[in-house]
């Protein structure tokens, strides 16, 4: 176990320059943004005297030279102080942390759905390669891969909420229902079905295609021929011998896709009114809340780094040849 801990510490140490780099980048973007916090506040108040603006600038340290401001900004980021959202009247970090669980729930559900169904469909297609079942799965994956995530979300609302009335179309829980225990969980699960499915479709298609290709590649290896030669059934060869090795590229892909899934969740959360990070980003754009927007950018990058460390640990478990450390 201490080995894993040491590895974790080392990986997190490695992440520091990346996070610092993104923070510097954020600061540069803030410099480019038209109008600073003082201008925004003054605008809010419906105009202000030049003296008042100067006073505000001094209070936020905006009158100091840029390198000093950068140093202060980095120091603040290091202490997890990402500034204040004047729109929500709340520190940016608190605001983001309050919305994070909803996004993690949505993404977790979408990943599980996309990964498990992607593996299943990919294995099925590979076992029936160039036969009708393979064609059906491959065409379906091709279509899902080209479908805009927000559009399929709207179409699902149309079918399942408006036409059939099976599932709620927006939000995370029924307002005013005041549920507890199992009822509460079921209520959230019912709200989760449509957004999680919409978010997972693109990734499911990606995993199906990758899994099919990966299975076919492993099928051509000598050890598979040996397994068949000893008289094992096709099912056993597929699930016991090929699947495990074919899974490795899938895990790598999972790590690469975390960032893209976070981006997709902005669209899905906007479509379904899911109260997560993505919806918050959408609001920040419209309220011109740059502090909040850049805070989301920074913390979502940190999230990508963090999830990738977790995935690397999973990788080492799947393939004993890879050692952690």
């Amino acid at each position: 176990m201490p080995r894993v801990v040491r590895y974790l510490a080392w990986r997190l140490l490695q992440a520091i320059p990346i996070v610092a780099g993104i923070a510097v980048f954020n600061f540069m973007l803030l410099q480019f943004a038209p109008g600073d916090a003082a201008d925004v506040l003054a605008g809010e108040a419906g105009g202000a005297t030049p003296e008042y603006i100067a006073q505000l600038k001094a209070r936020f340290g905006l009158d100091q030279p840029v390198p000093v401001q950068l140093g202060k900004y980095l120091w603040n980021v290091a202490r997890l102080d990402l500034g204040f959202s004047f729109r929500h009247n709340m520190p940016v970090v608190d605001l983001i942390l309050s919305r994070l669980p909803a996004t993690l729930l949505l993404m977790g559900a979408a990943i599980v759905l996309a990964f498990s169904l992607g593996v299943l469909l990919g294995v099925t297609a590979a076992r029936h390669v160039n036969r009708p079942l393979d064609t059906i799965i491959s065409v379906g994956a091709l279509l899902a891969y080209a479908t805009p995530i927000f559009w399929i979300g709207l179409m699902m609302i149309l079918l399942f909420s408006v036409q059939l009335g099976w599932l709620p179309s927006s939000g995370m829980r029924t307002i005013g229902a005041d549920l507890t225990g199992l009822g509460y969980v079921i209520d959230i699960a019912r709200h989760l079905v449509l957004p999680a499915t919409a978010l997972s479709l693109f990734f499911m298609a990606l995993y199906t295609r990758l899994m099919r290709a990966s299975m076919l590649e492993v099928y051509s290896l000598d050890y598979v021929t040996t397994a068949r030669a000893k008289g094992l059934t096709e099912r056993r060869v597929a699930f016991k011998h090929v699947l495990r090795n074919a899974l490795l590229p899938m895990v790598t892909m999972l790590g690469l896709q975390i960032g893209s899934m976070l981006g997709g969740s902005v669209l899905v959360e906007t479509v379904f009114g899911w109260p997560g990070l993505g919806r918050l980003a959408f609001e920040a754009v419209f309220q011109r809340d740059n502090n909040l927007l850049l805070g989301i950018l920074l913390l979502s990058s940190v999230l990508v780094v963090f999830i990738n460390v977790v995935i690397d640990l999973t990788y080492a478990r799947l393939d004993p040849r890879i050692e952690v450390g």
Binding site: P17, I18, G21, I22, F25, L29, F32, A33, P34, I258, G259, S260, L262, G263, G264, V266, L267, A281, V285, N290, L293, L294, I296, L297, S300, S301, V304, V305
Partner: peptide, 24 residues
């Protein structure tokens, strides 16, 4: 490659949103 890694870590779509929204 360090710079490339940095750009690859930032979630692309959120990054695009931030850029377009800041530069109008």
């Amino acid at each position: 490659m360090r710079v490339t890694e940095l750009f690859q870590t930032i979630p692309a779509f959120i990054f695009a949103i931030v850029l377009v929204s800041i530069f109008q």
